[in-house]
Amino acid sequence: MIELKRVKKYYDETYALRDINLQLPRGEIVGLFGENGAGKTTLMKSILNFIDYQGSITLDGQPITTKNIAQLSFATSEHSFFPNLSPAAHRDFYQMHFPKFSHKRFQGLMEFFELPMGTALKKFSTGQKNQFEVIMALSQGADYILMDEPFSGNDIFNREDFYKVLLGILEPHETVLFSTHLIEEVAGFIGRAVLIRKGQIVGDVSLMQLEEEGKDLVSYIKETYHYKPDRVSKALKELT
């Protein structure tokens, strides 16, 4: 389990994360929602130890170091691959560094998304680059897969294909933390939603719980964010 206790992060005098307490057990698909600048990326970067923070983040009770970092993988819309290398070269690189790398999953996903194995990634389209980024995160053999807006730039068909594939291939011990703005799209595929606003967790709910309460994810998010439905009409009235 990944456990965050009183995690704080501030840039200059602005808080990016304020007293974050969060537990991510194995086997969950968690959606992380929030506006731009809410702290989603900072939260993931803190878990991955890319940035300094206050508080504690542990993985199965141990601090995250080079000893257990291979249990975490990361897909980002900024892309973390080497643009001059081909997918085949990436496969070799991952195999060299990550002993649990799943060649079978890599091969299967490459074929499913029909990505060329020998072409340098800089020649791929944005959509293909996103797909490849996700393929590597899923094939690394990690127990915790962190994805930060992995599909910004992909079309709807592509994204839907991905959700179906992900649900089909994930093992029971694999956890996915998935940040996105596409709330309606992922509602059917996540099991839990974590809402973050101005660096604080303002909502944490399981989809089953929402279902029992007769609510849907979008209305829960709107309610938590105190969304004002008449905001637009009021603004238009003032403007016209």
């Binding site: 991955l48 130890n49 890319f50 080079t66 000893k67 970092i69 291979a70 975490l72 993988s73 990361f74 980002t76 900024e78 892309h79 973390s80 691959f81 080497f82 643009p83 560094h97 990550f98 800089k122």
Partner: peptide
């Protein structure tokens, strides 16, 4: 450059890679 491959390098189990 072009991508953030630094994120991959920082996740490698070999500390000094």
């Amino acid at each position: 450059k072009e991508t953030k491959s630094i994120y991959l390098m920082l996740r490698l189990p070999r500390r000094f890679e």
